[in-house]
């Protein structure tokens, strides 16, 4: 049970299609395998597959038979291959390797530094409370953050149950009202607290963890590098744990 009013992963299907189209020029389009494993890296296996095919992909790269069944039941008849550590193998016990396969996974979802592709996932959470604390007062479990001076705080409905790593405690930043704000104290299961200094915000305001850098939102790559892990790990986990919305 997830609550789309608290937070969401917004998926840009047109951007997946555009990325696929941009990547087609890397080789023979007949051998272009759109990697939709891990529920389309958290974007939804069916929606990602459909968008990638619209962008020119010929094959769908999956993990297992269950993925194929899910695609077929959604009416996607494109041929599938199992992606097996760098190569694509056709289905069945005697399936042969698809020679020269052009497998595109993280690139398809804008999760690499490739300048031709755009990010396809935006993660945000709502401000569910605000308050002001005095210098020296602690925030969240263990009081690992102490306010250096009087500061305003925003409570935001994103936590480690939504894939926002506990490791981001007192380390990661989230954009609110156009500014990057530090996560104050420990990331909890369902909430984080942002340090606003003298600025204030409103309950219901949207805090953006990452989104579209062309609209001055933080890039998923920036969030990933603040945690020292690949962007694909972030997208596949957050997309599977948050309510997804498509545009």
């Amino acid at each position: 049970m997830t609550n789309p009013f608290l937070h969401e992963a917004l998926i840009d299907e047109a951007a997946i299609s555009a990325n696929a189209a941009a990547l087609c020029s890397d080789g023979d389009a007949d051998l272009f395998v759109a990697d939709v494993r891990a529920d389309g890296y958290g974007h939804g296996i069916v929606e990602s597959a459909r968008a990638a095919i619209a962008g020119g992909a010929t094959w769908l790269g999956v993990s297992c038979d269950a993925d194929v069944a899910q695609l077929k039941s959604a009416g996607l008849g494109a041929p599938a291959v199992v992606i097996h550590r760098g190569h694509a193998k056709q289905l069945g016990a005697k399936g042969s390797v698809l020679a020269g396969a052009l497998i595109r996974g993280p690139e398809l979802y804008g999760l690499t530094a490739d300048a031709r592709v755009k990010p396809t996932m935006r993660v945000s959470g709502r401000v569910v409370g605000t308050k002001t604390i005095s210098a020296g007062e602690g925030v969240s479990y263990g009081y690992t953050y102490r306010a250096p001076r009087t500061t305003n705080l925003a409570l935001v409905a994103l936590g480690y149950a939504n894939g926002l790593d506990r490791f981001a405690s007192n380390r990661g930043s989230v954009q609110l009202d156009g500014k990057l704000r530090m996560i104050a104290g420990r990331v909890a299961m369902n909430v984080i607290v942002l340090e606003l200094g003298e600025d204030s915000t409103q309950t219901g305001a949207e805090a953006v963890l990452f989104g579209n850098p062309d609209s001055d939102e933080p890039a998923i790559s920036a969030w990933a590098s603040s945690l020292g892990k690949p962007a694909m790990d972030i997208a596949s986990v957050m997309g599977s744990l948050l309510p997804r919305r498509y545009r």
């Binding site: 506990r166 299961m189 599977s240």
Partner: peptide, 15 residues
């Protein structure tokens, strides 16, 4: 892993 058990349990894919 330097975390708490809850984080590992709740991150497991719903799939």
């Amino acid at each position: 892993l330097g975390t708490i058990g809850e984080e590992i349990a709740v991150r497991l894919s719903p799939r």
